[in-house]
Amino acid sequence: CHSECLGNCSQPDDPTKCVACRNFYLDGRCVETCPPPYYHFQDWRCVNFSFCQDLHHKCKNSRRQGCHQYVIHNNKCIPECPSGYTMNSSNLLCTPCLGPCPKVCHLLEGEKTIDSVTSAQELRGCTVINGSLIINIRGGNNLAAELEANLGLIEEISGYLKIRRSYALVSLSFFRKLRLIRGETLEIGNYSFYALDNQNLRQLWDWSKHNLTITQGKLFFHYNPKLCLSEIHKMEEVSGTKGRQERNDIALKTNGDQASCENELLKFSYIRTSFDKILLRWEPYWPPDFRDLLGFMLFYKEAPYQNVTEFDGQDACGSNSWTVVDIDPPLRSNDPKSQNHPGWLMRGLKPWTQYAIFVKTLVTFSDERRTYGAKSDIIYVQTDATNPSVPLDPISVSNSSSQIILKWKPPSDPNGNITHYLVFWERQAEDSELFELDYCLKGLKLPSRTWSPPFESEDSQKHNQSEYEDSAGECCSCPKTDSQILKELEESSFRKTFEDYLHNVVFVPRKT
């Protein structure tokens, strides 16, 4: 048989008469490798580009789960590009990614509803959504962080984005990388972005840091009482949809009607710091009717980097990364020049730590249904340095008659930039024990000054392991946590139920 035959053949030295091919099969003959313009397919066939392209389009058009959109890589027609490569849609070739590779997620039936953290986790790592997304989240724990972890990498949506009755959302900033909504599939009414009845939605994105392009379709905003109209108009300008909307697409009466839409800028007039305090004062603000001013709200939190936005980490279910302080308005003076500047002394802060701070007014709604208010920009203030805590785990070892090696770990709280350490030492008198000992005694162990690591005695271990207080009263049991108490109650309830079950099964009433 021919060298490319495997198993047997019907005619000697003829690659077209093989029972099976050793390498690849091409047009009725066995070959060692697939010549151009053919590609290896499933490690035994040679196919042309049209064959591989037909497989790709067949799966793409069917949208069946589990099928493969075949691509070409290293002269092979394979189910998908290997790690580190992405497909070129024009020629199906796998090309190296520039940075992290995109991950295209194809949605069944063309859309997916995100109504819980669990459903959001199914899209973790996706960068391109081939379909439409509907966000409908009523509640949950730590929602802002969970949504950002699972949806934060999405850069492109081919269909539309719909935010509907998501009472738990305060902001859409968890879509931190969303840059493009194509609108290839539109919501009824030709809408590519749809926001309806979101009672706590206050911000779409921080438009000073976020760009969003909507290729096709219109915007729809109705019944978002805490979303200011200025935020919607800003989205029109940034996304390129200005002029597409009709009169009733953006409701003037049901958007922002319960919001404090600040239209003035508060400026800080005085800032002073110490290692654990920050004193702030800002310019006074009074609405047209000074009785509408209820006070100020001061927001602050630790910020290692200057990239904080107002609604980071917030949701309507209680999660809030900001510390909020309510401040009463100052006494009002008739003389504008003698107006008191409101302020606040922030206490209990960490030394040498940068804080993000902003302040906003708290006002009631005027009778004319106009909203007044003022808010400052987010500023960054760093507390002063102070003395560091003591170095940890000092170790001293003498390696000769004239040297001592000293080692330690950095302090747990540096409280500033540590530039150097101060080492103090003092000579001590020799131990009298060394002169009084009889060095001729056998088995004498000389006193040693070398360091030995501390260890816990058996008594201390027994005390720590004991669940009861000892007789001397030195140790006591740790208080039980809520989960331990709940577990004990469940076990007790189970024992009672099981005992009742045994009584009912074992003891049967005697027939009379």
Rank of each mutant, 00 (worst) to 15 (best):
C105L: 01
H106Q: 12
L108Y: 14
G110L: 12
G110W: 06
T113N: 06
T113Q: 03
T113G: 11
D115I: 05
D115G: 14
S116N: 04
V117A: 10
T118N: 04
A120R: 01
A120D: 01
A120W: 10
Q121Y: 01
R124P: 02
C126S: 01
G131P: 00
I135E: 00
N136S: 13
R138V: 02
R138D: 04
G139R: 12
G140D: 13
N141M: 10
N142V: 08
L143Q: 13
A145W: 12
L147W: 03
E148Q: 10
E148R: 11
A149Y: 13
L153C: 15
E156I: 11
S158G: 05
L161I: 13
R165S: 13
S166E: 01
L169W: 01
L169Y: 08
V170P: 04
V170M: 09
S171V: 03
L172D: 00
L172E: 00
F175K: 01
F175I: 13
R176D: 05
R176Y: 05
R179H: 08
R179T: 12
L180Y: 09
I181L: 10
I181M: 02
I181S: 01
G183V: 01
E187W: 07
N190T: 15
Y191T: 07
Y191K: 03
Y194V: 14
L196G: 08
L196S: 10
Q199M: 10
Q199I: 04
Q199S: 05
N200R: 04
L201V: 11
R202G: 15
L204A: 11
D206T: 06
D206Y: 09
W207F: 14
S208Q: 13
K209F: 08
N211D: 08
T213E: 09
T213V: 13
T213K: 11
I214L: 07
Q216H: 11
Q216I: 04
F220G: 13
H222A: 06
H222E: 15
H222W: 05
P225V: 13
L227S: 00
L227V: 03
L227D: 00
C228L: 03
S230Y: 05
E231C: 09
E231R: 07
I232V: 05
H233T: 15
H233C: 10
K234N: 08
M235E: 00
M235G: 14
E236K: 14
E237S: 12
S239H: 03
K242R: 11
G243V: 01
Q245E: 08
E246N: 15
R247F: 13
R247A: 09
R247H: 06
R247T: 11
R247W: 13
R247D: 06
D249H: 03
I250S: 03
L252G: 05
L252W: 13
L252M: 08
T254K: 14
Q258Y: 05
Q258W: 09
A259T: 12
S260A: 09
E262C: 14
N263I: 12
E264Q: 10
L266G: 01
F268K: 00
T273D: 02
S274A: 07
F275Y: 04
K277A: 14
K277P: 00
I278H: 00
I278Q: 00
R281Y: 14
W282V: 07
W282L: 06
E283K: 06
P287R: 11
P287S: 10
P288N: 10
D289G: 09
F290Y: 09
F290L: 08
R291N: 07
D292R: 08
L293R: 06
F299I: 13
Y300H: 12
Y300E: 01
K301A: 06
A303S: 06
A303P: 01
Y305R: 11
N307W: 13
F311N: 09
F311E: 14
D312C: 00
D312A: 08
G313A: 04
D315I: 06
D315V: 05
A316E: 15
C317K: 02
S319T: 06
S319C: 12
W322L: 03
W322K: 01
W322M: 03
V324R: 06
V324C: 04
V324A: 11
V325T: 14
D326K: 01
P329W: 09
R332M: 03
S333W: 15
N334H: 13
N334K: 14
N334I: 13
D335E: 10
P336K: 05
N340D: 13
N340S: 06
N340Q: 12
H341N: 11
H341Q: 12
H341P: 10
G343E: 15
W344Y: 08
L345C: 06
L345H: 03
L345A: 03
M346W: 01
M346T: 02
R347N: 08
R347M: 08
R347H: 09
G348W: 14
L349E: 00
K350H: 11
K350C: 07
T353G: 02
Q354T: 13
Y355Q: 00
Y355R: 00
I357C: 04
F358M: 07
K360W: 03
K360Q: 12
T361R: 05
T361Y: 11
T364N: 01
S366P: 13
E368R: 14
E368S: 08
G373D: 11
G373H: 08
A374H: 04
S376L: 00
I378Y: 11
I378R: 03
I379G: 02
Y380S: 02
V381C: 15
Q382L: 09
T383W: 00
A385V: 08
T386W: 06
T386A: 15
S389N: 13
S389M: 15
V390D: 15
P391V: 04
L392K: 15
L392N: 08
I395R: 14
S396K: 09
V397L: 14
N399S: 08
S400F: 03
S401A: 14
S402L: 12
S402P: 03
S402M: 03
K409P: 03
P410T: 15
